[in-house]
């Protein structure tokens, strides 16, 4: 897929933001907007890889993969590029892994107009530094994904959801590698995948009751937080959903828990240096960069 047009659109000067399907917060308001190319490139089921434009809707991609019994570990909704840029996995992260592990290779347009290839075509690759992981979850503040190559996975023979009234940790201990263990303050919700007989035996052994599907996810906010964090103790049951083993809490009310601040001076300094080296003028998705990476305000001393 040729990225010349996309790179030209990103251009060399002035603030620029990128739009997908506005499924994850959308582009930065009031800033010139571009869109990444869309469309599925090559799907090789026997390689377990698929390439596509970053603007491809996730639903379209999953539908194409499903025809050969495969899928990618990206959350539902929006575009592939948006899912990667935000980097938040869906509810099956415990079993399927984080979004950052799904990306094998990317062609990314940088703030200086160059198009950079990072990663490799194969699942296993340690050639050079891992720019792919750097770009995943960077909110498009270091570069905009143009095309990507993703790792696919075979769909399991069975996927079933269950619930239990026992505490989530106790339930998790009885299960071999569940794909999700969720806790909403009153009940544990579990997803099991694999051979149907194994799923049935596991569920029976742990005293689980089948439910129709995944629970509703509180939409107020998503916070990185350990499942045993004391801050959760005071929250009413049902107002939150904890994903065990992956450090994620969904809140009905964003104000219930403040977002954590990145305070480690080393991390803040690294954010700043990365941003200065990849986007010295702060052109890309202004306002979305993490602590330390927003351009220094006029008047302060540039180190």
């Amino acid at each position: 897929m040729d990225l010349t047009g996309f790179a030209d659109a990103v251009g060399l000067d002035g603030p620029v933001t990128i739009a997908g399907l506005a499924g994850r917060g959308g582009p930065v308001p009031g800033v010139r907007c571009v869109a990444a190319p869309a469309g599925i490139g090559t799907f090789l089921p026997e390689e377990m890889t698929v390439s596509c434009g970053a603007g491809t809707p996730v639903a379209e991609l999953q539908a194409a993969l499903a025809e050969r019994g495969q899928s990618v570990a990206l959350p539902d909704g929006g575009t592939v590029g948006g899912a990667l840029a935000v980097g938040h996995a869906g509810l099956l992260r415990l079993g399927h892994g984080p979004v950052r592990d799904a990306l094998l290779q990317c062609h990314t347009v940088l703030a200086d107009g160059s198009t950079v290839m990072a990663g490799g075509t194969t699942v296993k690759n340690v050639s050079g530094f891992d720019l792919c992981r750097l770009f995943v979850g960077a909110q498009g503040t270091l570069g905009f994904f143009g095309t990507v190559l993703l790792r696919t996975r075979p769909e399991p023979a069975a996927r079933r959801w269950f619930r239990s009234d026992e505490p989530a940790t106790a339930v998790r201990r009885r299960l071999f590698r569940p794909s999700a263990v969720l806790w909403n303050g009153a009940a544990t919700i579990v997803c099991l995948e694999g051979h149907p007989a194994d799923v049935a035996e596991q569920a029976a052994g742990a005293g689980l009751v089948e439910v129709e599907g995944p629970p509703p996810v509180p939409a107020g906010a998503r916070r990185p937080l350990a499942s045993d964090d004391p801050a959760l103790v005071g929250l009413p049951a049902g107002s939150y959903l904890v994903e065990l083993g992956v450090g994620v809490v969904h809140l009905a009310d964003a104000a219930a828990l403040a977002a954590p601040r990145i305070a480690d001076p080393g991390v803040v300094a690294l954010h700043g240096r990365l941003k200065r080296l990849f986007d010295p003028d702060g052109r890309l998705n202004p306002g979305r960069a993490p602590a330390g990476a927003e351009p220094v305000a006029i008047g302060s001393v540039h180190p």
């Binding site: 750097l134 992956v246 080393g266 954010h271």
Partner: peptide, 21 residues
Amino acid sequence: GTVTMLGDPDGEWDGYDLRGA
């Protein structure tokens, strides 16, 4: 010589994936 922590034991964090880099 700065000592710093990259990533988060709980698995998710805000900011760049410095751990991954």
